[in-house]
Design a protein around this nucleic acid. Structure first.
Length: 621
RNA sequence: GCCUCCGUAGCUCAGUGGAUAGAGCGUCGGCCUCCGAAGCCGAAAGCGGCAGUUCGACCCUGCCCGGGGGCACCA
């Protein structure tokens, strides 16, 4: 396990969690054989056999051989050679096991091949019996809160916010599916200088001119922000008049900030109105993305209560009060921990003027999450620039005495950059999500109309929306979160290859086969698989069986990308299967029935995986 | 200076302490009288550098080189 909480290490053998009874029998036998031959067996680690087309599990004897060599045993032979001898010895003495077709010893490995028919039956029947619950983890008795989708108000929703939303929602679906009780929380930043800047410019230059549409208004506010920033910014070659004007503007903005803080009725009303515009846009986009936030924390509502924790931290000798000398209240984290090098450094938790900071609020909010919402694990989906902030916050929570601090996790992610460089709200150079989404749907619709003129228009639009958003979602989730995503419109909206639509298309093809076969034609038949399965069938069944392990890994490591990779792999195998394995045209009725079941199972797992990626699974496209 | 993330094929990205390092795009070459070609099959091409740990390192550790981010009253 690379990341995530300190839970149990993910075992490779979870891949075989449907068959761990068989694995246990083999393991017990190996132990008996080794004991009988006076071999000190090292811990057995099982992996899947890395050769396509055959299905089984493997373990190596390198560690056991190395241990023996270190102990002066093994006759001084090279480790690989000795490992091979051990593998052969075990193979020779292993009795026949029900469900195992054959065993081989190769290059230090013991390969145990499953008897194909019985495993195919188990996998396919399990999927069909569980349906949308296939792959769901057992209840973990822990409550997880995922805080995500926390844009600042008074700006429009851009693709950076969209990346955050997709990461958070996918992660929430993953933790929930893996068995954790999951709460989705949003924490919009609805105060601060950026907010005041927009209000000032609106009030002074644009009052009452706002467009009616939710998104038009959001984009319009972004334009105002960029304009206001330009007006307030020092520039080269300013005339004295320019400077005077700029200073007057700056004074007006400061004045408005003060009025906001003192609760001035006009400024507060202006704030409420403009703030609501942003929140309305946010709610609209969340609805479009099928994201339901459970708990809303507004920065403005955390601000005042957060100051109360400062006294407590001073009392507990965690914080140092320097206000007597016109200083702030600080926490000398490194000093408290006795660290000599700069690591967590010193954090300010209250300005010298008595106002709170981002950190103050996050500390107060964390306590509320723990005490009021009884959160055991707290995940923050916030970009990587704030990693020091969260390290400081988590460390202070730990010193403060919250055991949950150990289970706080900052899911950081990289920038969404444009081919021409970084986005910048201040410069107004941002790619707005709504524009991209509209363009995506438009492009898909063009393809759709050309290929599927037979589908009626209203349905075409619906499908195009599913495919367009699927392409965007997959672009966001298929790169690991610690890397920047270069957002190129043509790449993000491509529908070929390693994309969301490719996976959706596999689901569509599976649906088409089942449709053609006529509903549940195969459902009354017992699952047999008592014929010689083709390589692509075995590969497909194997990938289906790995779904539960992928869910566990993605949830445990907080990495939606793991699920994105799994889903692509499954789609890829299905497409290959589709190409070479006839299903509806199979003459043998029993084989046809089994293959239909396999297709139904594959479609189910594709749908389950897509759902975890916040992507719809259409039946036609 | 300190902390942190990153460096894998021309480009964008996966991946593993051990059996042949995988995809997509791009390039080149095949496949629609056969469940939909948003597809399939094939070819060329790769682990930044130097040490160390280990039976075994692309993976772990240290250093170096190259790039991003952060470092007391922004969020």
């Amino acid at each position: 396990m690379k990341k995530g909480w300190g839970g149990a290490k993910i075992q490779d053998d979870i891949i075989f969690n449907m068959f761990n009874d068989i694995q246990q029998i083999i393991e017990d036998q190996i132990k008996i054989i080794c004991a009988a031959n006076d071999i000190a067996l090292a811990a057995l680690k099982w992996t899947s056999i890395p050769f396509a087309g055959e299905w089984g599990m493997a373990t190596s004897f390198f560690q056991t051989a190395a241990d023996a060599a270190r102990a002066g045993q093994g006759g001084g032979k090279p480790v690989p050679q000795r490992a091979q001898e051990l593998a052969e010895q075990v193979k020779g003495q292993l009795g026949s096991v029900d469900g195992i077709s054959r065993v081989e010893a190769v290059r230090g490995y013991l390969n145990v091949y499953f008897e194909t028919s019985s495993y195919a039956r188990r996998v396919v029947d399990e999927v069909l019996a569980s349906g949308t619950d296939f792959g769901r983890g057992a209840p973990k008795n822990e409550r997880v809160m995922v805080e995500f989708c926390s844009p600042n108000t008074h700006h429009s929703f851009h693709i950076g916010h969209y990346l955050n939303a997709m990461l958070g929602e996918s992660l929430a679906r993953l933790t929930s599916f893996a068995g954790f009780e999951t709460i989705r929380a949003s924490y919009p930043g609805d105060l601060g200088l950026g907010v005041i800047t927009v209000m000032w410019a609106y009030d002074k230059f644009y009052k009452g001119q706002e467009p009616a549409g939710i998104h038009e208004r959001g984009q319009w506010m972004l334009k105002i922000y960029a304009e206001a920033t330009a007006l307030l910014e020092k520039k080269d070659g300013e005339t004295p008049e320019d400077i005077t004007r700029r200073e007057v503007f700056e004074a007006e903005r400061r004045e408005m900030y003060k009025k906001w803080e003192s609760g001035d009725a006009h400024v507060r009303a202006l704030w409420q109105e403009t703030r609501e515009w942003s929140l309305a846009e946010l709610r609209d986009i969340l609805a479009m993305l099928k994201i339901k936030i459970d708990v809303w924390f507004y920065e403005s509502e955390v601000d005042e209560p957060s100051r109360k924790i400062v006294d407590e931290l001073i009392q507990k000798k965690i914080a140092t009060d320097e206000r007597a000398t016109n200083g702030p209240v600080i926490v000398k984290i490194d000093e408290l921990l006795g660290l000599t090098k700069d690591k967590y450094r010193t954090a300010v938790i209250l300005r010298s003027d008595g106002t709170s900071l981002y950190l103050t609020k996050d500390l107060a909010l964390a306590r509320e999450k723990f005490e009021k919402h009884h959160v055991d694990r707290s995940i923050y989906v916030v970009d990587f620039r704030q990693s020091l902030h969260f390290q400081q916050a988590f460390k202070i929570l730990e010193i403060w005495g919250f055991p949950q601090a150990a289970k706080c996790y900052h899911l950081s992610y990289g920038y969404v950059t444009l081919p021409e460089g970084a986005m910048s709200s201040r410069k107004g150079r941002v790619v707005l999500f709504k524009e991209v989404a509209d363009e995506a749907v438009k492009r898909v619709l063009a393809v759709e109309s050309a290929k599927r003129g037979d589908i009626e228009e209203s349905q075409r639009v619906e499908i195009a929306t599913q495919i367009g958003l699927g392409a965007l979602a997959y672009t966001m989730l298929s790169t690991d979160n610690n890397k920047d995503i270069v957002f190129d419109m043509d790449t993000a909206l491509s529908f070929d290859g390693h994309t969301g639509p490719y996976i959706q298309n596999a689901h569509v093809r599976a649906s088409a086969i089942l449709r053609k076969a006529g509903g549940t034609a195969e459902s009354g038949q017992p699952t047999m698989f008592n014929y010689s399965l083709e390589q692509k069938e075995v590969e497909l069944i194997e990938q289906i069986a790995k779904f539960g392990a992928a869910v566990e890994q993605a949830a445990n490591e907080y990495r939606p990308m793991v699920m994105a990779a799994y889903a692509y792999e499954l789609a890829n195998i299905f497409h290959s299967f589709y190409q070479v394995i006839p299903v509806t045209q199979t003459e043998d009725a029993n084989i046809r029935s089994d293959r239909l079941k396999l297709v139904r199972a594959a479609r189910q797992v594709l749908a389950n995986a897509l759902n975890l990626l916040v992507i719809d699974a259409p039946e036609v496209m």
